[in-house]
């Protein structure tokens, strides 16, 4: 599966009501580390069946960023059953993201 772009309109369906756990990548076009993280996220989306990976552009989706208190990007938030379970900030290695996603 590829990374799904999520806005406030489909956030509930794609993230909160997802059957699988969801890794949300909060990012922006002007953020270098976010751009570096994207190919890793794309790879993981192709490789992993146990997680849905979504991208949220904080410039367009400032309401979502504010709701989830995102004030540092790149910011990865793992949602399980509609609840935040883990969070990581900054550019991190693929292995660490795999650890966040878990089995």
């Amino acid at each position: 599966m590829s990374v799904i772009e999520v806005t406030k309109d489909n956030f509930e369906t794609e993230v909160l009501k997802s059957d699988k756990k969801v890794l949300a990548d909060f990012n922006a076009d002007w953020c270098g580390p976010c751009k570096m993280l994207r190919p890793i996220i794309d790879e993981l989306a192709e490789e992993k069946d146990n997680v849905k990976i979504v991208s949220i552009n904080i410039d367009n989706e400032d309401e979502l960023a504010e709701k989830y208190n995102v004030s540092s990007i790149p910011c990865l938030v793992l949602f399980e059953n509609g609840e935040e379970s883990r969070r990581s900030i900054g550019l991190i290695p693929k292995e660490e993201i795999e650890n966040i996603i878990g089995e």
Partner: peptide, 17 residues
């Protein structure tokens, strides 16, 4: 407090302020 007010990257996080 990283991500809750502390940042090491102004170009990444400046826009939040």
């Amino acid at each position: 407090l990283v991500g809750k007010g502390i940042s090491y990257c102004a170009t990444c996080d400046g826009a939040f302020y």
